[in-house]
Amino acid sequence: MITTRALTKVYDGKVAVEALTMEIRSGEIFGLLGPNGAGKTTTVRMLAALISPTSGEALIGGYRVGEQDAAIRRLVGIVTETPGLYERLSARENLEIYAKLYGVSNVTRQVEKYLRLLELWDRRDDPVGTFSKGMRQKLALARALVHEPKVLLLDEPTSGLDPQMTKVVRDFIAELKEQGRTILLCTHNLDEAERLCDRILVLKTRPIALDTPQALRRRLFGRRIIVTLEAVTDRILERVRALDFVLDVQQEDRRLVIALSDPERQNPILVRALVEVGAAIRFLTEEAHSLEEIYLRLIEEEERTSSLPSAPDRAEAPSAR
């Protein structure tokens, strides 16, 4: 649905987004994850045909950014970083303006539909200036949807919301996916990316990694299992080390952290070996990494490689495919 090739944006000599190549499939929630200043908003603006790429190209639903902008704007709905609502106008008036600008055929019906859906109907005639942050964000979502766009660009839609409202907005985004819309979700919140996204692209000016949340984990840490024993003896340690498929063993008190290449096949063998040398196994679990660790590691790695004086291995840094 969205394809970019070597998409790059430079502002007055400052590179904001560099060589972004990605393919967002129809109907998926695609996360753009990165710290502040990573280029998320810049990317969204290019995809919404608001600013033009310095180089590279982007296609939305087959329309090329910079050439078929009017068609792109009709296809895309956007929730900008700040809601940007007309404060003196009512919720209904705010939506009506947009419905008309998007050329919606039945303005009244569409406006009512989304005001009801986002539970703003009771406050429809109140000036937006009196709305809470959460209500404003909901209205911004309604506004992005009023012309029934197939593609949604959401720029940090839950930032600054309280936990309850965050949940409401996230649940709503999940519902939008059910309706078959393609969603690009920008966030610096890892938890959010993990919960909502089918795939995540970690961005820090350049794309750093692109995969499913689960695969990202595996790729960076390999897979490790944790075996908790009643007691760890030298004999047990030796026996484990002797297994040829074990990549690494570390002892942490009564626990063994064992790196394996294929735990599904290797765990039974490992357990049998442990039992043979008299180990009493209390628990066996797979080590879980939060996306946060992965993310921080990616960012660190990126900083290390890009801060090298002459970065000859820049191209070797993990890149999106």
Binding site: R45, A48, L50, A70, R73, R74, V76, I78, T80, E81, T82, P83, G84, L85, Y86, E87, Y98, L101, Y102, G103, A140, R143, A144
Partner: peptide, 13 residues
């Protein structure tokens, strides 16, 4: 000030 221009400019106007 209210940052209303960005969503406005995202419409086909």
């Amino acid at each position: 000030q209210n940052r209303t221009l960005e969503p406005l400019l995202a419409t086909p106007i």
